[in-house]
Amino acid sequence: MKLSIVNYGAGNIKSIQFAFNRLGYNAVLTDDPEELIKSDKVIFPGVGEASSAMEKLKDSGLDVLIPQLNQPVLGICLGMQLMCNYTEEGNTQGLGIFDVSVKRFSNTVKVPQMGWNTVNNLKSDLFKGINERAYMYLVHSFYAEICADTIATSYYEKEYTSAIERDNFFGVQFHPEKSSRAGEQVLQNFLDL
C-alpha cells in the first residue's frame, strides 16, 4: 500500500510516521502532487496556526489538489480543521470539504483542551472495533461544531465534532498517533477502508 503524508511544513510528522511503522506500514512525506494522486491513502496532518498553514498550502497549490483527491484522506487535528469551511483562528477560509465552521473554546474552560477525552456517538467504519466512550488524546483550542457529517462527538464546554466524514474524506480532532491502542485501531481502520 502506498501511504503518503502531505508535507506542508506542519509539525511533528515523525509521530505519525512512527505510528504507521508500528502497524507495519511505511508512510512517505511528500508535497509532490503526482505522488499524492498516486497514493492509496493520504494523511493530512497539522500542528500550528491555521492562517499560516493555509498560506503554505496555497503556496504549493495543495489547497486546490487536496479537495480533488479521490482516495481516502485523513485529516488530523489542524488538518481536519483546515478541511472545514472556515476557522476563527486567524480568520481563515478552509478547504471547504466539510460544510462546517471551526470556533474557539470560550474562556469558561481552560484553553487549550489538553489530555484524554471520550469519543461518543460513533458512526463510521473508522471506529470499527472501538467502544463508545473510548479515550483519545486531544490538544486544541478550536473545535468544529456538530454538523451532518459528524461521525463522533466529544464534550468540552459543549458537545462538538471530534471526527467527521464526507465521501472519501475523514477528519479527526484527536491525535490517533498518540492515543494508545484505541488510536492505533483508528489508524488501522483507515488503512483498511
Binding site: K14, F18, N21
Partner: peptide, 28 residues
C-alpha cells in the same frame, strides 16, 4: 521513545533556544 511509545511525552532540561526545541520536536 517516539518510535515505540504510543502516548504523548514531554522533554525538559537544558532547553534554551528555538533550535533546541526544533531538534527535539523533529525527533518526535
Amino acid at each position: 521513545v517516539a518510535a515505540q511509545v504510543n502516548i504523548p511525552f514531554t522533554v525538559g532540561g537544558g532547553i534554551s533556544s528555538v533550535e533546541d526545541v526544533d531538534d527535539l520536536l523533529h525527533c518526535g
